[in-house]
Amino acid sequence: MGLYLSIDKKLREKAIVYADDFASYGTVFSKKQLRQEGKKETTKIERFNNTIRQRNSRLVRLSLSFSKKWENHYNSVKCFIINYNNEIIERNPSL
Rank of each mutant, 00 (worst) to 15 (best):
S65Y: 07
S24H: 10
W70E: 04
L11R: 14
K69R: 09
S76D: 05
H73E: 08
N56Q: 13
D21H: 09
V77Q: 01
E13V: 03
K78A: 00
S24V: 13
F29G: 05
Y18F: 15
F29T: 01
E87S: 08
R12M: 12
I88R: 12
Y18D: 13
T42Y: 02
R55E: 15
V17N: 12
S30G: 00
S63Y: 03
N50Q: 11
K69Y: 09
I45V: 13
R35W: 08
R58D: 02
L34C: 08
I52C: 15
V60G: 07
R58V: 06
L11Q: 13
E41F: 01
N83F: 00
F66H: 10
K9Q: 08
I82M: 06
Y74A: 01
R35N: 12
E41S: 12
I81W: 04
L62H: 01
A19E: 08
E90K: 15
Y4G: 09
R61P: 02
S6L: 01
S65K: 14
T51E: 09
R35G: 00
R35I: 15
I16G: 10
N50H: 08
Y84I: 04
F80C: 02
R55H: 06
Q33C: 07
R53N: 08
W70G: 00
R47N: 14
N49D: 08
Y84T: 09
L64R: 13
I7H: 11
E71N: 03
D21I: 08
W70A: 04
S65Q: 14
N72M: 05
M1H: 06
H73N: 07
I82Q: 07
K40Q: 03
K9N: 09
S63E: 07
S24E: 11
L64G: 11
D8K: 08
Y4P: 10
L11S: 14
A23Q: 10
I52D: 00
K10V: 13
G2I: 03
N49Q: 11
N49L: 06
R47H: 10
D8H: 10
F80Y: 05
S6F: 01
G38F: 02
H73P: 03
F66Q: 04
R91Y: 01
S57M: 10
F80W: 07
D20A: 09
L34Y: 04
G26W: 02
V17T: 12
Y25A: 00
K68W: 05
T42M: 05
I88F: 09
F22H: 14
A23P: 01
N75S: 00
V28D: 00
K9H: 07
G38P: 01
Y18K: 12
Y18Q: 13
K78H: 06
N86T: 11
